[in-house]
Design a protein around this nucleic acid. Structure first.
Lengths: 173, 173
DNA sequence: GTATGTCCTGTACGACCGTACAGGACGGTC
DNA sequence: GACCGTCCTGTACGGTCGTACAGGACATAC
């Protein structure tokens, strides 16, 4: 049955785009529905509850993210490189990682929640290490900000180019 | 009449803090009211409509921002320096500049709206110049992201230190 | 032809939002 | 004492949100 899967895919695509440009909370089911020519109840039928949309968009990237967080990198720069690589590859959903998806209980099922909720903060923590040096903190947040905005606001550029520039920029931080 | 002004000041302080950490749209009048021990109607009495809160928090910085946008800088780096200086000094409200305050018609009165609404984009435009070079676009967005996150997430650090690090970091972009 | 399951609509609900409005408490002025 | 403006509360309204639910259209299976 291709039509159903097709509808699901189109909803996911619309949601990905709208989430990227407005954020998760600021995008309503009605917005997504309008983008694909359906009613919001139809969207809710396929993705229920709303958090499942975020969850499903995140899931391919989430595994890799856990990998990033789990491995030990020789230097901070190696981790930064991997992070940039990750952010650029999944730039269409990178904003979801950086947002506070908590408060919406249903983004991820049960046990994963604690992990998902603080994805951004876990990246930050790994970036800072156990070093409370203010300069490191500042540069780490700056790096995350640069990564998010740089990735989200240049969706029209080829991935390769974004990666090259962002890699260079983030190394400078 | 100190009590009334005091209440206004306390409301403004609470709003500034909540806006900084959650964003304008995600902060309700009830949240602000709870932070100062009042009802949301009391907050609405002093600041009406809600956009006036943002407007009043923004107003001291807005003039200086217009100055930034108006003057011609010899080099891009000079503008970046001025931008960092600005962002750090007004870091408690810098997030409001970066947000889309449009959609809420009442943030700024009438004619200013068109200006205020696109503050972030005007900064970006001045940063890129008329150069559509993708690398410049990328680095400009990265810079804005770094500036916002770096400023917002390190509110506990002394302003001087934030400025020093951010100045160095943003010059590298 | 009838039954079944999928896909979608329409309607309705409770929760929250910003806002409007009437009225009470309080202090200062005549 | 009567009057008045300021500050704040309680209540209520319309709007939007995500969600629940009944039912219709339609294809497929028997």
């Amino acid at each position: 049955m291709t039509t159903a899967d097709d509808t699901r895919t189109r909803i996911l695509a619309a949601a990905r785009e709208l989430f990227a440009e407005r954020g998760y909370a600021a995008t309503s089911l009605a917005d997504i529905a309008a983008a694909v020519g359906l009613t919001k109840t139809a969207v809710a039928y396929h993705f229920h509850p709303k958090g499942r949309l975020a969850s499903e968009l995140l899931s391919p990237a989430a595994g890799e993210m856990l990998g990033l967080l789990g491995t030990d990198y020789a230097s901070r720069q190696e981790f930064v490189d991997a992070l940039v690589e990750f952010a650029v590859r999944y730039r269409s959903v990178i904003r979801l990682f950086m947002e506070d998806l908590a408060g919406d209980d249903s983004v991820s099922p049960d046990s994963e929640r604690a992990t998902i909720r603080t994805f951004r903060d876990e990246i930050y923590a790994k970036l800072v290490g156990d070093d409370p040096d203010p300069a490191i903190r500042l540069r780490s947040w700056a790096l995350l900000g640069a990564l998010q905005w740089g990735a989200v606001k240049t969706m029209d550029l080829p991935e390769e180019q974004v990666r090259a520039v962002l890699l260079e920029s983030c190394r400078a931080l």
